[in-house]
Amino acid sequence: MSQSIDIEKLAHLAKLDLTEVERESFGRQIGEILEFVEQLAQLDTEGVEPMTSALDVQNRFRDDAPGESLSAETATQSAPAAQDGFFLVPPVLGTAATGKGS
């Protein structure tokens, strides 16, 4: 499984902007971590059902009835930028360099 890791691509997928120092140290450390976990490949797991939860949980349905909920004002109280119960964010289109946004 071992292969070189494209840190740039990974950071992009993870929506992280890394510093030069982080790019270098992460490249090495993540390589080591992946090498460490690769020992799992030694095990024969043919026919084993993946275990996605600690206990066998069954989907629980509830009645489709409206209940109490947070108001828009409360929900946006901790937002970095909000107005009239809406979250404010930079433009979706354009580029950061054009000076539009955040």
């Binding site: 360099a97 539009k100 946004g101 955040s102």
Partner: peptide
Amino acid sequence: GAVDESLAKAEPLEAMYRASRA
């Protein structure tokens, strides 16, 4: 008002996500 090179080409919202998480 300057934008880091790595974020300059990103869309403003995406650039904000990445800068905030970084």
